[in-house]
Each structure stands twice: as C-alpha cells, then as structure tokens.
Nucleic acid binder design. Structure first.
Lengths: 363, 363
DNA sequence: CCTACGGCGTTATACGTAACACTCCGGCGC
DNA sequence: GCGCCGGAGTGTTACGTATAACGCCGTAGG
C-alpha cells in the first residue's frame, strides 16, 4: 500500500504556487486517477476504463491491456467509488438490516455476508433496527450510503416495513419462503432443527413437554412452534403446552416458572425453548423451584450462542450456521442484481446434545 | 417516500422504445435532483445548493430560501451522496473498527457511535477485524466505502496496524490515552472500575485474591491489571496472584482451575476476572472442584454483558456504558474533522454488585 | 454624475468514471 | 475500385453537486 502523494513539494503553505485546489479529504486511494494510469501506460483514459472494467476484448490490444494493468498496479490505482457510482448509478454496496447487533446470530450473519460480498468486490453496510438508531426510522438515511439492494431479517419488523416497496431488490432472512415482494429468501432449517429436538426428547422418554415460545411475531418462531407441534401430534401419548415469553433471560425465567407450577405428576419433564437466552432463564427457574436440570427437567435451547456453553449445565441446542445464512443471502442478492432469479434457500440445522437434557424422570 | 418510477411501460424488452437510458439502480432518492428542486422553486441550481447547505446568509433572500426548502420537502429531494463526495472529497462517513461483533460491548459501541453520527448527518460503516473477513487485511477495501475518519479499538490489533499512517484522523478506543498518531482517545474508566472491585472485595474481607487476566496485549487489560495491583499494594495484608487466560469460557475455566489448586488455606477466596466471559468460566471451575460461588469463592466479572445475568449466580461486575464510549468516540472524530483538537475522554465505570460475591469464608 | 459596494442571484466549471460516437486503417468480397 | 466490416483506439459527454467567478441593481459617498 502506498503512503505518500508521490509528487513532492507538498510542504509549503497552501496557495503559494500554482498548486491545484485539490479538495481535502481525497487522501484515500492516493489521489491516483484513471487518467494518471492512462498517461503512465501511454493510452487514453477511456482505454483504462475498458481494460480495468474487463470490457476490452476486441477493443484494446492485449499488449496495451497488459500495460494498463501494470501501470495501475504500479501507481496503486484505486477507482474512485463516488465517481463510479455517480456514473453508473450502482454502489456495489448492500444494506444488511438486523434487529439487534447484540445477538450473536446476526453478528455471524454479518460476517458471512461481508465475506461473500468481498469476494465480488461488494461492501456491506449495517443497519441495526432497535430504537431506530436515529429519530427517523429510515434505514436508508441511517445507512447514509446509497445501496444497490437490501438483505433484511424479518425480525427487524419496523425497519422491514419501511423497506418494502422501496424499489430495491430485497432478500429476506428468517422469513416465510413464500414472501412476495422479496426477490429471494434464506432460512436456516429451523423446522428440521426442531424436529431433531423433538426426536431427541422423545427418545429420552419425555412425554409432557412445554414450549417456551418467543413472543415475537416472526416467521422463524412460528415455524419452530409448528414443527414441534407437528412432531408431537404424530405421537398421541404426548402432551404439548406453550408458554409465551419475552425474548430475555427474565422472560424465559418467568415463562418457565408458570410452566412448572402444579403437581409433580402434571409438570412437564422437558422445556423446549425458542432461543438459548430463554433456555438460560428456564434453567434458573427450574433451580429456583428446587429442581435440577437435567435430572428433573430437561431444557433445550436454540441457536447455539456462546451463552450455551457458558451456563451450567451446558445447553443442548440447535446450531444454525449464521455465517452460511449471511453468505447465502448475499449470494442471492448478487444473483438478483445480475438478473438471475434466485429462489429460496435453506441451510441445514444440527442438534448439538450437551448436558441440559437427560432421560425423563422415572424411565 | 416515493415508490414507483412514474413513467410506466417497464415490462417490455430492453431497448424497445426510445426510453431514456437512465442508469439502473438510481432508484434511491426517487431520482429528484437539485435541479428539479431549483425548477420547482424558480431559482437556479446553485441557489438550491447554497440554501440546503446553509451557506446562504447574504446570498439568497429569506423568501427564496423558504421556497427552496419547501420545494425540496415537497419533492422528497435527497442529495446524491456520490455526487457530493465527488465534489467535496468528503464522504460524511466514519469507519468503525472492532475486534469482533460477537462481543456485546462493541455492539453497544456501534450503537452509540451510529446515533451520535446520525445527529450530524454522518454514517458509520463497520469493519470487524477477526480473520480479516476477506483475503486482504485492508480495512479500507473491506469497508468498500471511502471514509473521512476512523474509530478503532486497540483490541483489533492487526487492523489497527494497517490503519496507522493511513493519513486519516484516527480515534482510538480502549487505548493508551497518550497514543501518538491518534487524534483522540476514548476509554471507559476501567482503572476506576477495578478500584471499585478491589474496594468491594476488601470490604468483604477477602485477602487472598487471584486475577484471571485476559491474555490479550491491549491497553485496557493492562490498565485493569495495574489498577488492581495498585489497589492491593496499598494493603500489605493482601496477596495478589495472576493467572493469564484465553478470553473464552474455557480459558477462564482453565485459569481458575489452576488458581484454585493447593491446600484450602492457601487458596484464593476471590477471583477477579477481566471479563464476564472469563468469570462464567471461573464459576464453572469453582463448582467442578466441589466449591460454591460465592460461599467459598467470590468471583467478579467485567463489562456487564447479558451473560452476567444469565449465569447463576448472577455476576458482580463492572458496567462500562459502551454506547457512551461509542458516542464520545464519534464526537471526538467529528471535532477532529472540524479542526478542533479533542483530547482524551474518559467515561465512568460503575460496579454492579450481584450474587457472585460474598464475605470471605471465615469472616 | 460617476464609482464603489453590498445584497441577490446566476453561469460556468470541476470532481473521476463509464459509455457512446467517432475516426482511422487494413483487408476483403463483389 | 468501392463499399463495408471489424479491430484498435481516442474525443467527448453526462452523472449531480459545490463553489468560484461573474453580473445586475439600487443606493450612498465623493
């Protein structure tokens, strides 16, 4: 990477000689323009643009193309993003809208999306929705950069509302695959994950199960609930109840406490939580009632956050590969921008068995 | 907000009629330019620029200025960021470099920075450093947007290295206030936080203390260690030992296990951890040795992550107000960009006492 | 009465890039 | 011999904004 300007004599007071009034702040890229490259390579600026844009087959000779590339490398040329955007209308940037950065899952999504973007010379700018960051709930304004497309989690409900009909290609995450208005959808296979949880608990002999459900109106959570209900419906000897909970540790605690009231014979032997955070709360509730996890009550989480191995006992949970989700989302968006229609993608989920589940008491 | 294109007939094959070649993707802002506003307000484009840029005192009459503002609002005019950048060289965007998004602390920093930025019509683009996201460890390329300045945590060591001498104003977080090359520094007052921890434990009668120190070579952590050592040095009846730990739950567990080996009378009665994650691991180690937190061993954390209230017992820890740090960092950067030299800022830290600390056994 | 000037406002230009419209030239089919 | 084609380039323009340079008009001072 270059450091200085190259053309010395920058030490004097400004305006002393006939120095051009180069605007300040243009330091990035070293100030090397395509015209500088052209001069160095002995061609016109247009030729530089063609070569570097890979549109030169049959317009520029191979020899000159090589010369251009060499000069560009030599000078450390970086195309000016603003000028390019102004000319083409494209920004090579995507907006990623998530409900909250604090959730590790979305941090992973961002990582995956950013990596996939970088491979195609794209950038990612993040808009975390909670509280709107600024006064106006306008994701575009908050992102502050014009973008070519949007990847949004359906959990960022308010922001997504502002996004629909924005005229930009929209890839939805955690959303109904049949979402109209989305050019593609990408989901972790939460239904399959939940089926694995159900199978695991049934194997362990659990028959009375309570679902600690996140009180968020999002497709992922309804899908989780439906998958669990479907799995247990197939077994007539089971009983499923549902307690809705605010998506916090305290919420999980309260919901689990409600679930566990009643005589021991009617008590659920397993609590299936929509999220590891809820599961952590549920574990606390179990212990506060004088019971033990997993001896008396088994608890399962979802998402496999760092939290899952931080609490005791370590949580049996479902790993969702958030970075794969992010990467797939970006890939779908790039496809859409290229005119290829990308359908809905599902990335696999895998049950991870740890210490919070055990055979049902009395089996 | 505008929705459609206005001029229908977009369904046919491209190039069919004589439709203007308006570049695609320019949808953002509805395509309203300052010239459109000028026409609507009956003034020149230059006047629009002056009024909207608030540089019109004495150049444009108040009446026309009002007309311009009204027309802009009416048409939903949004200045084209690319054109503005091209003209001025400034991007009104800052780059925020953090070690990892997964750490809630930095999520909070981002929130604060973004909010402060929005108030000044600035944007924030994020570069999480781990693994470099892409092949090239070039934060600028990864951010993909030219930026006016950088806010970086010293914990993102590799990326920061690439940033120094980049010619851009750099605000350092979690860093030595005397950092040369930084235009300003912003830190949570970790030393004071640690002093509060020490005072709290001394009050409870603890005299044998082990510091579970993060094995990361960053100013914040050395400052925490030094503050603890200084506080205990003032009390000759105390004993301080140090165990370095990788900054994970497992790392904390291992370090605590090492710390707790030996006869009960030589064992530390309190473990002071550099981070809540380490503290979670330390609690696990205590229990695995058949001891109880806080009855036998007190444990303290740092940062007050969500984790702190998810584990049991809930952690006594130090709250650091990450959003305030982020906001202060952005404020410092904006000051620097405006030519005002901002020094180093310290934001207060506060001990939060919960259930993981208790009187030392035998007091 | 002419000039200087301040309030008001416009015209023109530049930023760096991409793409269109041209030019030039050697061959080639008829 | 002429028109035409395709390769190899160059000249020019437009994108939307900010600002320097210029102009007009009425008034006041000399």
């Amino acid at each position: 990477m270059r450091v200085g300007r190259g053309d010395g004599g920058h030490g004097g007071p400004p305006g002393a000689g006939g120095t051009a009034p180069r605007p300040p702040g243009a330091a990035r890229g070293g100030g090397v323009t395509s015209r500088d490259v052209a001069r160095a390579a002995g061609v016109s600026q247009a030729a530089v643009s063609l070569v570097l844009g890979d549109k030169w087959r049959g317009r520029v000779s191979a020899a000159k193309a090589d010369a251009v590339r060499a000069a560009a490398r030599e000078l450390g040329y970086r195309p000016n993003a603003a000028a390019r955007t102004l000319r083409t209308g494209g920004t090579r940037t995507a907006l990623l809208v998530v409900p909250a950065l604090t959730n590790e899952f979305f941090a992973g999504v961002h990582t995956g999306a950013a990596r996939a973007a970088a491979a195609h010379d794209f950038g990612v700018v993040l808009y975390p929705s909670p509280e709107g960051i600024g006064p106006a709930p306008d994701p575009f304004a908050a992102a502050h950069t014009a973008v070519d497309g949007v990847i949004a989690s359906s959990m960022a409900t308010d922001a997504v509302q502002a996004l629909r009909g924005g005229g930009l290609p929209l890839v939805m995450l955690d959303s109904d695959p049949a979402d109209p208005g989305a050019v593609a959808t990408v989901n972790a296979d939460v239904a399959d994950g939940m089926r694995q949880v159900a199978a695991h608990l049934l194997d362990l002999g659990h028959r009375r199960i309570t679902h600690i459900a996140a009180a968020i109106d999002s497709w992922t959570f309804t899908a989780r609930g439906r998958a669990l209900a479907d799995a247990l419906d197939a077994r007539p000897d089971t009983r499923l109840r549902v307690q809705r909970a605010e998506l916090t540790v305290a919420g999980g605690l309260a919901a689990a406490r409600r679930a566990l009231t009643g005589p021991p014979t009617a008590r659920p032997t397993a609590l299936v939580c929509d999220d590891d955070v809820l599961a952590a709360g549920a574990c606390k509730a179990v212990r506060r009632l004088g019971l033990r996890v997993p001896h008396d009550v088994s608890v399962t989480g979802f998402d496999d956050l760092a939290l899952a191995t931080a609490v005791e006992p370590e949580l049996t949970t479902v790993r969702l590969a958030p970075d794969t989700v992010g990467a797939a989302g970006m890939a779908a968006l790039l496809d859409a921008l290229a005119g290829r229609r990308a359908g809905s993608t599902t990335v696999p989920a895998r049950l991870t068995v740890r210490d919070s589940t055990a055979p049902a008491p009395g089996t």
